[in-house]
Nucleic acid binder design. Structure first.
Lengths: 207, 207
DNA sequence: TATCTTATTGACCACATGATCAACAAGTGG
DNA sequence: CCACTTGTTGATCATGTGGTCAATAAGATA
């Protein structure tokens, strides 16, 4: 194997180092969870001394909070972009449900659940989590309102329906982490529930 | 203040020590979370050398899993006992919702959420979590069936309704840990949703 | 009272964490 | 080409973790 040779220090601009740190933190949190996000893990990943990482962040708590926000905001942006392709509101929400519950996002789900757990005793992180939850709730509610304006959905309280759906996403996601009822039924259940809430036929939510 | 004097070793039966360890572990997990449940914390709480605690448990992972099960099973038993006083099924389920969401169980909720997070990478714990979730799901479904048999509820799929309700409990609980929408509206939302699922008037679920 | 089983101690080990800081050197500006 | 700014290193600190084990002594037994 390739000898790690001489470390050969390289000198980069603070901005680039900051980007490297953020990127490494993101990858580590997704692969190992927020509890695997350590000073030394970040340093090792970008091939740098632990002290350098410490030099670029106020504290590990800050890095954890920032990384949480980074990952979770990215997830929402990705999903919003994904469903934007669907022509009608029912299709968009249906795809939202499918995407969130398809089981292919365990990494992000773990970050969410750890965010709630760590946030219980870390106010700075809790504030970050709340911001991202607001964003999710808003995005869902917006989609519902759009559907209502298009006449596709009934006129239930969009805010309440969005909250309800988000609670189910979060609950089912957490349950799935331990593989409890972690099967396609999750999607079926949620689709049925949501169809009831929006006063549409469940089939309408299929793509 | 009282000098901690000479430790003065006391000799107890293995059974009693085991009970002490389990009790201390339970108290620590509720006060500090599962991540605060350390060998030394348990030892300090029962006033004993760390090595003694290690002597009585196979490993900390086992103690954590056992403590999770202990706490969570106790919670369910307590709630089942509490609602047993209500005469009709609607009152029992209404009280169940109130009790679970009244915000007075943050300690147990944290244990649940940490169970999901830690269970994602700890199979033994995950198995424990699944067992307790089965018990909860079963208890809720049983109550629903009882109500249906008494003619109080409609004849929806009790299993699906129980799952749906449990997902909401879990999701709302997790959200509440970071104080997101952690207000009485949670109960109102859930009651309204559940009334729809059971095909009854929301007022029926009030006590 | 003397003996002996065994519950208990406390000193370890190996490892991990976040954080600090003097010393070093890369690369730019003079 | 030299000097100097500053990004970077690596050793070090104080703590924390789970776990092991020979030595000790409490308290039941004879």
């Amino acid at each position: 194997m390739t000898q790690a040779s001489r470390p050969q220090r390289v000198r980069k601009s603070p901005d680039e180092r900051r980007r490297e740190v953020a990127a490494a933190a993101r990858e580590i949190a997704l692969a190992e969870g927020l509890d695997g996000l350590t000073l030394r893990a970040v340093a090792a990943r970008i091939g740098v001394a632990p002290g350098l990482v410490a030099h670029y962040i106020p504290s590990m708590d800050d890095l954890v909070a920032d990384t949480f926000g980074d990952i979770v905001a990215g997830e929402l942006a990705g999903i919003v972009e994904l469903i934007a392709g669907e022509p009608d509101a029912a299709g968009r929400i249906g795809m939202l449900v499918d995407t969130v519950l398809d089981g292919g996002r365990r990494d992000v789900t773990l970050v969410w659940v750890q965010g709630w757990a760590l946030g219980a005793r870390n106010d700075a992180l809790a504030a970050r989590v709340r911001i991202e939850m607001d964003a999710w709730q808003q995005a869902i509610a917006d989609e519902i309102v759009r559907g209502q304006q298009a006449g596709a959905f009934g006129h239930e309280d969009a805010d309440a329906v969005a909250w309800h759906l988000l609670a189910m996403f979060d609950g089912l996601g957490a349950q799935g982490l331990v593989r409890w009822r972690d099967d396609p039924d999750r999607t079926a259940l949620t689709r049925r529930v949501l169809a009831g809430l929006l006063d549409v036929d469940p089939a309408v939510l299929e793509r």
